[in-house]
């Protein structure tokens, strides 16, 4: 992968983040129903458990014990749970006639953009410190 200027990365990511927030606010403002903001908060925090447990792994890897592996598993489990929650939340609101179909689609796409921004941002600055590639 060619080396990208960090400034370009940050500008690109922030514009994607702004597009995500635009979709969310649009979904909220068109119908005067601000539940999509809750969904975007969930999407924004969905990558946090992986980051926390990776921090644990990096600091205590001198004794690569089984507990570190379990912590990573727990982080992945929670992160996947939160991401699925973020996708399921607008669908449930749509099913219960609280959000319209357009607002649901806008919320999910905006939330995925926000989540993608967070993940890409974290992986960029991991890749700077060490030579680790992006892994699932």
């Amino acid at each position: 992968m060619p080396q990208i200027n960090p400034l370009t990365k940050i500008i690109g990511l922030s514009s994607v983040l702004a597009a995500g927030f635009l979709l969310i606010v649009l979904a909220g403002a068109i119908y005067g129903n601000w539940f999509p903001v809750v969904a975007v908060i969930i999407f924004g925090f969905a990558h946090l458990p992986i980051l926390i447990t990776q921090h644990f792994e990096n600091n205590y890897d001198d004794f690569m014990s089984e507990a570190a592996g379990y912590a990573i598993d727990l982080g992945r489990f929670l992160s996947s749970f939160l991401l699925t929650t973020g996708i399921a939340f607008p669908l449930i609101l749509n099913h219960c006639h609280i959000l319209t179909k357009v607002a649901t689609v806008l919320t999910i796409s905006g939330g995925l953009l926000v989540y993608g921004t967070v993940v890409t941002f974290a992986s960029f600055f991991d890749a700077d410190s060490e030579e680790a590639t992006f892994e699932i």
Partner: peptide, 11 residues
């Protein structure tokens, strides 16, 4: 597998 498990639990 862990990701799948978390997603299934959330569903």
């Amino acid at each position: 597998g862990v990701y799948l498990s978390g997603a299934l639990y959330a569903i």
